[in-house]
């Protein structure tokens, strides 16, 4: 019983928290991959930027990060739309690898701007350590984690409503299925592309802020999430937002559970290699079924 509670408190819940963060980030990656048809290397930096916007707004206002989140989402979206206009749009008709390269450059440019403006030292989003809430005597869950999981659930529901109930959301899925047919159907590419950036950047900002809320603010935080997010998108099937959500949760859980002492008393995997788990899953998936769990596109 104690072992079970320990498993839930220290492995399962953190796994779900991390998984929700990956899931939100991976939706943006998979939509960009499906609709704009390129692997966006700057997505991690979009997250970082969102976090620093939030941190700055918190210095000048007294509000909770969740209250500030919409404003920092908006700022992040504006920056990303500007980047698209200046650096990605000229390549719409070029081989996609040109945009991948441009995004690789943007990744380092955005990061260097963040490092220049805010410096590289660690910052905290919320001061102090919070006492976990104890439910049913043994279930310990920190209020932070509850906030993150609940907000992630709300955001996933919103994405679901957008994609399944609205015309623009359905058109996004259609374009992700087949850009050529979408064009023949009269679906305007640019409007869908804009919406994709809006959705991707907002979710990236939220995911980044949740991570910063759980841990701290740091200039490399987004880049560290890039690989797990790519892995989640590939695991779920490229171009499949629901797949990306599932993929993100799976990767977050596997990462946390990989250091549980499943056999004997030692962690199954040296926690130092946690970050390699996502990569291993991705490689296995590419070998076994490159179209992913949800049968996405294979390029």
């Amino acid at each position: 019983m104690i072992a079970l509670m320990e498993f839930i408190n220290f492995y399962l819940i953190p796994g779900i928290v991390l998984g929700s963060i990956y899931a939100l980030g991976a939706v943006g990656i998979t939509l960009t991959f499906g609709i704009l048809r390129f692997a966006n290397f700057a997505h991690g930096e979009t997250m970082t930027l969102g976090v620093y916007f939030t941190w700055t707004l918190m210095q000048i206002t007294p509000f909770h990060p969740l209250v500030i989140l919409p404003a920092s989402m908006l700022l992040t979206v504006l920056v990303v739309l500007g980047i698209d206009r200046l650096f990605y749009k000229p390549f719409r008709a070029s081989p996609t690898i040109m945009v991948v390269m441009a995004s690789f450059g943007i990744m380092l440019m955005v990061r260097s701007v963040i490092q220049f403006v805010w410096g590289v030292q660690l910052k905290g989003l919320v001061p102090g350590i919070q006492r976990p809430m104890v439910l049913f005597d043994t279930l310990r869950i920190s209020p932070k984690h509850m906030v993150i999981i609940a907000s992630a659930v709300v955001l996933v529901l919103l994405i679901h409503l957008l994609l399944s109930r609205t015309k623009i959301g359905k058109a996004m899925r259609a374009m992700s299925d087949s850009p050529e047919l979408a064009r023949l159907t009269g679906i305007g590419t640019e409007k869908i592309v804009m919406t994709t950036w809006v959705v991707g950047a907002s979710l990236a900002c939220a995911a980044g802020v949740f991570l910063a809320y759980d841990t701290h603010v740091e200039t490399m935080m987004g880049f560290k999430l890039l690989l797990p997010m790519f892995a989640a998108a590939i695991l779920g099937g490229v171009g499949k937002p629901y797949g990306a959500i599932a993929g993100g949760l799976i990767i977050g859980l596997v990462e946390e559970l990989s250091s549980y002492p499943w056999i004997g008393t030692e962690p199954l995997l040296n926690p130092g290699y946690k970050a390699g788990v996502a990569f291993a899953i991705m490689v296995l998936m590419l070998l076994w079924r490159p179209s992913g769990l949800f049968r996405g596109r294979v390029f």
């Binding site: 299925d177 087949s178 050529e180």
Partner: peptide
């Protein structure tokens, strides 16, 4: 125009495909 191949959106439902047809 109905192209020869890739002429439906496979992951959308039948009804959603028809809705997309009416997109404009």
């Amino acid at each position: 125009y109905v192209p020869q191949t890739a002429n439906i959106f496979p992951s959308l439902t039948v009804e959603e495909n028809l809705e997309m047809g009416a997109y404009v």
